[in-house]
Design a protein around this nucleic acid. Sequence first.
DNA 1: TTGACTTATATGTCTAGACATATAATCGTA
DNA 2: TACGATTATATGTCTAGACATATAAGTCAA
Lengths: 242, 242
Amino acid sequence: MSLATDASDKPTLYKRIRADIEKRILTGEWPPGHRIPFEHELVARYGCSRMTVNKALSELAQADLIERRRRAGSFVRRPQHQSAVLKIADIRAEITALGRGYGYELISRKLRAATAADRERLGVKKAGKVVAISCRHSADKVPFAVEDRLIDLSSVPSAASADFSREPPGSWLLHHVPWTEAEHTISAIVADDRTAEALDIAVGAPCLVIDRYTWRSARTITAVRLLYPGDSHRLVARFKGG
Amino acid sequence: MSLATDASDKPTLYKRIRADIEKRILTGEWPPGHRIPFEHELVARYGCSRMTVNKALSELAQADLIERRRRAGSFVRRPQHQSAVLKIADIRAEITALGRGYGYELISRKLRAATAADRERLGVKKAGKVVAISCRHSADKVPFAVEDRLIDLSSVPSAASADFSREPPGSWLLHHVPWTEAEHTISAIVADDRTAEALDIAVGAPCLVIDRYTWRSARTITAVRLLYPGDSHRLVARFKGG
DNA sequence: TTGACTTATATGTCTAGACATATAATCGTA
DNA sequence: TACGATTATATGTCTAGACATATAAGTCAA
């Protein structure tokens, strides 16, 4: 029980309260369902005002570590839906982070009126024009991933004049389009002839597929399919309490 | 510009302030790098005390939507590292959520002193005993995934006496072990003979592999490998602003 | 021009109150 | 016993101040 008389006050008080509680939850001392002390008890224990403990508890609640119920108190939440933060870095960043030489190659770029297939893929009823891009990323000259992308020009008009022969469309979008939402679908396929050639792997070799669909406030921006050699590439998702 | 005289006060004031700012960021009206109004300006605009706007801004900062810098002000953050929330549901929950019949089958359960390979897999220097479990999950009698798991008994002693013939080890752990951290590695392989038979797919068919390594405060709990038929199963990761 | 010092200022934290509101618990009644 | 009304209480929000602190910007000297 760390009391208010704890002299090491490098972190601020509310942060120490939050850390104290978090620690008890993480170590299992206060298991899921456990009622943590009432605010007025913490006020007494730490000798501070209620706003201070309230701030600590509010942050824990925002982080889904505890659940607050009026009149009842605050309770440790159980690890809910198993979820993880999947870090899907910009491919260029990912490769350079590995200390390998990044290579980019534009295979094709077509500007066209949206076909029925394009509309289906972008999930829009009617679209004007789209840009269809096919390109390849490599690490130290070795094929790393092939990308097949569609950009909705009605959402991102400036993409029509962007030069994708040198800058990958993913990087370009990241720097030119504000906050977005996205949905990723990860699956596995075996390489067909075309994929095998593009990735320089054997036909029938496993490939990891990431389909990413990106929009901003109900407006589709882009749909992309990334194909990685499945036995060499790995996606790492880190999960922490939740 | 919504002023303090806005009468629709169903949500509380600080939530409205937060929502107002969030909306401007999401729509791109305030692009990344834009300096949002100073606290004292928001105080004037909404006619409230500084603590109220501070709470709104603090939550936006905690959600990584804005960055606060002393003396400089608060700024809209740019979509940082592309990351996504990957929902990896408990398999039973996942299947029942799809409205399909869940089936579970324990293939083998062995209690043994940890071998060198076990220690390697669990990432521990020395371990006492472990439980090795192999099982299969099915949806409407069709194989859905095969699971190959190792539980460190020095961390979870009660797992030695748990009955895994009826309850899947994943569900059991979820309910008996408090907050954990985990790391997932996702990759693709092609089915070998044994896998093909277990999943009732063709040899050479693509499989999605999830390797999950779980620990609690630096203490390994379990390591599991899940194999899914890759062309039928999909992992969906949703990403929202950040 | 550059570096060191000073100052102004926006955020960070905190207080000691207040009233609002949802709801668990109690009490009373059918 | 079951149900409806009442009450007590923990959290939710808010105020009008306060002092602390990091730092951008300005000032001045080498």
